[in-house]
Each structure stands twice: as C-alpha cells, then as structure tokens.
Design a protein around this nucleic acid. Sequence first.
DNA 1: TTGTAAGCGTTATCAT
DNA 2: ATGATAACGCTTACAA
Lengths: 341, 341
Amino acid sequence: MPVSLTLEEIARLAGVSRSTVSRVVNDQPNVRDQVRERVWRVIRETGYEPHAAARSLVTHRTQIIGVIIPEAVTILFTEPFFVRLLSGATEACNSNKYYLMLSLFNGPAGQEAMYSRVVRGGHLDGAIVASTPLDDPLILRLIEDGLPFVQVGRHPNEQVSYVDVDNVAAAQMAVEHLARLGHRRIGTITGRLNMSSGQDRLEGYRRALEAHRIPVDEALVIEGDFSEGSGMRGAKDLMSASATAVFAASDSMAVGALKTIRQAGLHVPQDMSLVGFDDVAVATAVEPALTTVRQPIERLASMAVEMLLSMLENPSIAQSPGRKVALPARLVVRDSCGAPR
Amino acid sequence: MPVSLTLEEIARLAGVSRSTVSRVVNDQPNVRDQVRERVWRVIRETGYEPHAAARSLVTHRTQIIGVIIPEAVTILFTEPFFVRLLSGATEACNSNKYYLMLSLFNGPAGQEAMYSRVVRGGHLDGAIVASTPLDDPLILRLIEDGLPFVQVGRHPNEQVSYVDVDNVAAAQMAVEHLARLGHRRIGTITGRLNMSSGQDRLEGYRRALEAHRIPVDEALVIEGDFSEGSGMRGAKDLMSASATAVFAASDSMAVGALKTIRQAGLHVPQDMSLVGFDDVAVATAVEPALTTVRQPIERLASMAVEMLLSMLENPSIAQSPGRKVALPARLVVRDSCGAPR
DNA sequence: TTGTAAGCGTTATCAT
DNA sequence: ATGATAACGCTTACAA
C-alpha cells in the first residue's frame, strides 16, 4: 500500500536516467553537483524511498539482521534481561541503518520450517544468537548454512564469534565478597549447567573458594536452572547443609532463595547472606535489596551487533576463527550480605 | 551467503518449467499429482527455499509485520510487559508464516529517517504499534501512509483498530476491592495521563468511588508516570493526605510506594493497603506480595497480530472504521491489602 | 559525467 | 496441465 514512486519516475521528473538517480541515492561519485542537487530535490519532494526488495534482489543484501532466540532459552526471558538485550541490539542496528528481525523459536512445532525459511530464504544478512545451551544444534546449523552470526554468551566452538560477560571473574568476585565478610560455609545455586553462563559462574565460585583456601563441599553446590522456583528449592537444601551464605547465579534464584529463607523464619542478612547475579529490577524491589553482579547487557548486545556488521563488511574475517570478547561485570553491594553469626 | 538454489534450477532438475515449480511451491492447482510429487522431491532433496526478495518484488508482500515502539514508550519497557508482548506477537506470526521486524524508536535522532525507510521502503505488510501516547504523531503518519496497523491499547481515533484490556473495568474492580475492605480514604497514583491506559485506570478509580458513594478528594489523586520513582513520590503525598489505601496504576509504582511507606516506618497492609496493576514478576518478589490486576499480555499481542493479518487478507475491511476489542483483566488477591486501622 | 541494457529470482499472463 | 515470456524496481557493467 504505502508504495512510494520508483527510480524510473524520479529519473523522469529530474530529467536524468535511472542510473544517475541510483548513483545519487547511493552516494556514489561521478554525478555533477548540480545534477545531484536536482535529483535530491525531487527525491525529497516526492518522499521517494528505494524499494527494499528490488534492491535486495540485486545486491543480495537485505540490511536485516536476525535476533534468534532458540526454544530452550525462550522461557528464561520473562526477565528484563531480554528486553535490554533487544534494546541494545536495536539501537546499534538503527544507527547503522540495519533492521532487526526477531525470531523467537518458542512455538511448539514449526520452528524447523521457520528456521529454514528465515535463514535459507535469504531474509537475513546475519544473526545475533542469544546465549544458547552449549549443545544446541542451532549453532552448528548456522555454521553449516554459512550465515554470519555472533553469539551473546561464550561458546566453545573455535569458529563462533561471541561477546560475553566475564562470568568466571564476576562470580569469583561475588563469592570472594562473601568470603571476605568471614563466611566459610558458602553455598551456591547454579544456573543451568548446559549453558556457559551456568558453568562459568560455578567455576568462578570454585575459584573463589580456592583463593580463600576453603575446601569445596559438594553438598553446598546445588544445581538450579536460573528460575525463581529452583532458587527456592536450592535454598532449602543449602539451609539443611548449614550454609551461612548463598551465591545464586541469577537474581531470580536469589529472590526465590530469599522467600524460602524467610519462610523458614530466618533473616537476610543476619542469618544468611545472599548475593545474586544480573542486577535486574527485582534486585532492588525486594527487601533487603540484593547485593548482586551487574551485567552490561545493552553493551553486550550492541557490541555483538557491531561485531557482526564488521564481519558483514569484511567477509574475509568472517571466515577466520571467531572473535571472542569478554566484558567485565561489577559487584553492586546492597543490603543482603553481612558477617556470619 | 546461505543462498539456496533458484527456481530455475529446481525446474531443470525436475525436468519441468519454472512456472510449474512455482505452482507447486505455492500449492496452486493445475499440476498433475505425479509431477507435483516429483517436484517436491527435488525441493526436499536440495533444501530449496524461494528467495524472499524476488518474491516480494512481484507480489508486493513481504510477509513481515513490524512491531513499532515509539520513543515515548520505549523507556517504560524495562518491564517484562514488553517481552511478553513480543513473545505473544512472535508466536502469532510464526504460526501464520509471517516474520516480525522490531522497530524500537529509542535512538537519539534518526528515528525520522528510520520510520521513512522502514514503512515507505516497502519492508512491512503491516504493523503492530505498542500503546502510544494519545497525541503521538506516529499514528497519524501511519494512517496517512496507508500502512495497515493495529494498536495495542485504546486509541480514540475512529479509524484505528486496537486491542486493549478493559482498563476502566479493571481499575474499578481493583479499587472496589479496597472499598469493600472498608477503606474510604483511597488514593491513587495514576499512570501517564497522556496515555489511554493512564486515563482509563483513573476513570476506573473514579467510578469505583462513585459506586461506593465515596466523594473524590483530588488530594488523593497523584499523577505518576508508571515508573517506580513516581510511585515513591506519589506515596509520600498520599501519606500526607492520610490515605489508608493506594491504587497504583502499575506494579512498578506500587513497588515504589511500598518502599516509601516502609521507609516511613509504616507497614503494608496493616497501616496502608496497596494494589498494583500488571502482575509482572516484581509483584510476587516483594514482601508482602502485591494484590494486583493481571493483564493477558500475550493474548493481547496475539490478538493484535491476528486482527492485522485478517486486515491484510481482506483489504476491504482495512478501509472501514477500525475494529476495537477490549479484553477483561482479573484481580489477583495476595497479601498487600487489609481492612483500615 | 551520463545513459543503455542486462540481470537478480520470482509471479502472472497468456498461449499451447 | 504445462511452458514461454513479460513484468517487478533496482544495481551495475559497459558504452558513449
């Protein structure tokens, strides 16, 4: 419906040929300034916009990058994390004249067909993939199909480019905070261990204990899945194991833990110290406000987009082993930690 | 890069003409079953996918619908509301073989150019517009440009189609809940009054008071903007005005109010009852858990998409006055309300 | 510096 | 039922 004029018509109105208009529109050289000006005027007056499909057909580029969230991750995104990721990605796209196509593979079936249509149909110049499970076949398919992409979150495959937060260092910092307060029985509720963020935060936990010469007690390591529910369950186990502090690998789990601890009649931080991860809205909504690790989410996303765009502009680097970037996170100290009783 | 074969090549491999392959791909009649089968086999074996741009160029349809979030709204979406909206919209798109292009107009400038490129460049078959300020020029431009769209959230313009939650009824229900508990000094912290949701929830508040023959005291009506900060400020005013209960037009504001109330040394619900709106994650994260109004967000989004698609399939109805749908919301009673002292 | 013309991969119209 | 063939609106050699 909202079709603008065609190149042809602009050319006629400006009294030049199609090629000239094309050159003007694409800021190419070899057009007399006077002519260029005249053409621009017609374009402005008519509100002409080049037809995207026609252009793509010949250039083989759509100026669209996909943000792909595989099914397995989709459930995690009731959290603001995802919005902020999108916000950062959109911002980066906008300022580079790219568009963003969102593919949440959450639907029951059909995601197979969806994938195929979207990536093989030539819709996308490239993709941003949100932190997938380590064994998600999506990554391999993308490599196979030759679609340039950048993952948000570490991936062990040599070929994949990613931007990540330094989860190991961040988690270590969080746990060392507890150790320095004097805690020796520090438990952790892990994230999903089939995801790099889950694994890495656990690794950071172990390193922190090691650095403080605290032996790891496996009874204090409870596997969670980033969700509030698993935080509640995890806290129960940790109380039984007589932990005095808990490092939860997500704020949601920390909130779950907080609820359980409170239900048991204990108080945070007096009876139990608690640190989360993410620094999303709930972190400050709960009482006491959570000490937690803040991730630069928007930055992560915009860096991913920029990395992708540079790969698109320079196809040779897309071939080489992937670029890997790890951003630092910082600990935000609030009211949920104290010295052990 | 990930280009599949072309129609031409499939035709050659199957020993038929391009037209026949096209007919098969598009499930058109007039192809012998045997031939059809043979063509499908080649397609499957080769993993052929029609080139989207080539198709769009001739059909004038992209199968892409845009989700447009104007600048003014973008800041509100640190909340899960937005993710859930996207989730619902994506789901609906996927199951209808449509794609979703996300346009967050948050960038500093350039959104003007962005708009023009995206809608006039023929990228979109239609759009979903997230609840905009009532006076946002975006709506008028869309109408002008003739792009079919559906807004999530009421709009007074006759021509615009929308799906909304029945904010008036929902707010009335929430406030009547307080009235029935015996409250007479019920305050409200409104949403942004330049948005229909803000206006309508205020209207519901007034109607509830009226229904219970409680005179409206304007000192008990504090204008907020949906944000936690405005909730904190609003609560201060309402405490001075000796309210015994507060209806906040968003959970974020309710959380803000809760913090302020607590800081003042008062307790919820003993000293002050509180009800929110949205039922997002924070509502259950805080202590006490918020009594609040639950919106069917995903449903809202998927209905919007379906309405849009029906407009696309039946262009005649796109011309007539817009379709208007209001979904009911329900009150979720938790622990933040009680009888007045 | 400018214009002509071929071609991108489809769909659609018209013969056959 | 099937196949030529002309669009669709643009970019891009290649000519002038």
